[in-house]
Measured scan of single mutants.
Amino acid sequence: MIVFVRFNSSHGFPVEVDSDTSIFQLKEVVAKRQGVPADQLRVIFAGKELRNDWTVQNCDLDQQSIVHIVQRPWRKGQEMNATGGDDPRNAAGGCEREPQSLTRVDLSSSVLPGDSVGLAVILHTDSRKDSPPAGSPAGRSIYNSFYVYCKGPCQRVQPGKLRVQCSTCRQATLTLTQGPSCWDDVLIPNRMSGECQSPHCPGTSAEFFFKCGAHPTSDKETSVALHLIATNSRNITCITCTDVRSPVLVFQCNSRHVICLDCFHLYCVTRLNDRQFVHDPQLGYSLPCVAGCPNSLIKELHHFRILGEEQYNRYQQYGAEECVLQMGGVLCPRPGCGAGLLPEPDQRKVTCEGGNGLGCGFAFCRECKEAYHEGECSAVFEASGTTTQAYRVDERAAEQARWEAASKETIKKTTKPCPRCHVPVEKNGGCMHMKCPQPQCRLEWCWNCGCEWNRVCMGDHWFDV
């Protein structure tokens, strides 16, 4: 396979590697080409510095992935760790964990309700045991953590790749202090920090972006993250068709209702045909949960890209028209025109101005929308079919299609509260000796007794199943 190397943020060049090629071997190839010592090179990928003893497969490097290699003399205490030698983080029983690669970060837990604080980093599902597709590297999971809308060759929703760059020099040479644990960490600028490894760059702020994971991409090709779309790892039924499908869209209502993408497309087109989208002054033209839940309008309007190009163009047109109407304007009634106009409040005669090729020149009556006339309008008909009709959803289907309910059931079956801080902690095999993952707590306690870890627990039921 081919990976592209950008040395000291210059133009990239291809390097041929195998899945079992080590990072140090990659350094040696680059060092020979650039005429520099291999031990002064640092390989940066997806916000993480890659260790010498890791392989291309370990690092989730795919065909035509772009890695950054910078030349920086080692500072005291760094060289041993980078070589894969006596790194205290690798000691058996050590409590410190390697910062998780962005290629394996899962933010789907952050669609849980606000009262489930902490689960994004504490609760991990076991539903990723799908067998890898044919042709994928051994052991590589097909679980997708992110979804994007690819405006490039795909023109559809695709699995996405999370990447990070330095907000100062805009190069992907920043190593994160810690990985993101929720969508806010990724979507809110300057929320996460790190250290830029580019020479002479003092940058410390992280800037995240997404790429389409279905095809090789260049540095400049980015895609918009659709953070309401998630892999259906909890096997929730769709609120409309009641099938279990994946991926799904999880509405931001209190129940976190789930809808499959085909039904979401149908829901949007139906509402669009009836012009029953909601115009929100802050958000724009949007839709609420299909069950009509309060405070559930979709905030990231790129989710409506699921409509496809033709329907999305209609959505944008109707949204612009609705904006004009909300501002007190009118639409030209001549067939084939429909231009938005903003006449004076007491102006009865409205002319669709033909300047700049935008208007048709038609003069019409503001009251009856017919060709302009003197005197009273002959008839004014009330528009028919403008009443909002509820999208029919079966109550039982709505009850079963809740992301929140599956989460709470998982928590109930696989977790116990920490005796000190009461945060839910998952036990997935292993011994009875637990350690609270909350940095402010870190209590060592017994899963069996529910009390602080002691010699009695150690001698009596340390390794009970």
Score class of each variant (00 low, 15 high):
residue 409 E to Y: 11
residue 59 C to G: 02
residue 316 Q to S: 11
residue 258 V to A: 07
residue 370 E to V: 05
residue 139 G to Y: 11
residue 70 V to Y: 04
residue 125 T to S: 12
residue 134 A to Q: 11
residue 57 Q to S: 12
residue 28 E to M: 06
residue 247 P to K: 05
residue 31 A to S: 11
residue 256 R to V: 01
residue 370 E to M: 07
residue 324 V to W: 04
residue 392 R to E: 09
residue 256 R to C: 04
residue 408 K to G: 10
residue 452 E to I: 15
residue 293 C to I: 02
residue 192 M to I: 13
residue 296 S to Y: 06
residue 62 D to Y: 09
residue 227 H to A: 14
residue 89 R to I: 13
residue 264 F to M: 03
residue 351 T to F: 10
residue 201 C to I: 01
residue 127 S to A: 14
residue 156 R to I: 06
residue 302 H to D: 15
residue 183 W to M: 03
residue 14 P to S: 04
residue 275 R to K: 04
residue 40 Q to R: 06
residue 193 S to A: 12
residue 258 V to G: 01
residue 359 G to D: 08
residue 230 A to C: 11
residue 429 G to I: 14
residue 197 Q to S: 14
residue 17 V to I: 09
residue 450 G to T: 06
residue 205 S to T: 15
residue 189 P to Y: 04
residue 298 I to E: 00
residue 92 A to T: 13
residue 385 G to M: 09
residue 174 L to P: 05
residue 415 T to D: 10
residue 121 V to R: 15
residue 171 Q to S: 11
residue 121 V to A: 14
residue 64 Q to H: 15
residue 418 C to K: 01
residue 50 L to M: 05
residue 160 G to D: 00
residue 282 Q to C: 11
residue 331 L to V: 05
residue 211 K to A: 14
residue 240 T to C: 14
residue 51 R to F: 09
residue 6 R to V: 04
residue 450 G to A: 14
residue 75 R to Q: 14
residue 208 F to W: 05
residue 326 Q to G: 10
residue 121 V to I: 08
residue 2 I to L: 12
residue 188 I to P: 05
residue 336 G to Q: 07
residue 222 T to A: 09
residue 437 P to S: 07
residue 386 T to Y: 13
residue 218 S to C: 11
residue 50 L to C: 04
residue 52 N to G: 06
residue 118 G to K: 11
residue 85 G to H: 13
residue 384 S to R: 10
residue 410 T to N: 09
residue 274 D to N: 05
residue 372 Y to C: 08
residue 64 Q to R: 15
residue 208 F to E: 00
residue 144 N to S: 08
residue 394 D to A: 06
residue 152 G to F: 13
residue 335 P to Q: 08
residue 87 D to A: 10
residue 390 A to W: 08
residue 421 C to N: 00
residue 186 V to N: 01
residue 106 D to F: 04
residue 130 D to Q: 11
residue 262 D to K: 04
residue 140 R to P: 11
residue 6 R to M: 06
residue 108 S to K: 11
residue 434 M to W: 00
residue 197 Q to L: 13
residue 46 A to C: 11
residue 231 T to H: 11
residue 286 S to A: 03
residue 449 C to L: 00
residue 220 K to W: 09
residue 179 G to H: 10
residue 277 F to Y: 12
residue 225 A to N: 03
residue 135 G to N: 12
residue 196 C to P: 01
residue 354 G to F: 10
residue 55 T to P: 04
residue 26 L to N: 01
residue 332 C to W: 02
residue 72 R to W: 14
residue 384 S to N: 09
residue 303 H to C: 05
residue 435 K to F: 12
residue 273 N to M: 04
residue 288 P to D: 06
residue 69 I to F: 05
residue 313 N to A: 10
residue 420 R to G: 14
residue 86 D to P: 09
residue 283 L to K: 07
residue 118 G to T: 06
residue 449 C to K: 02
residue 455 R to N: 15
residue 109 S to K: 13
residue 148 V to M: 02
residue 18 D to I: 04
residue 444 E to P: 05
residue 412 K to C: 11
residue 179 G to V: 04
residue 37 P to A: 10
residue 261 L to C: 05
residue 311 Q to C: 05
residue 443 L to F: 09
residue 261 L to T: 06
residue 284 G to L: 02
residue 392 R to W: 12
residue 291 A to W: 05
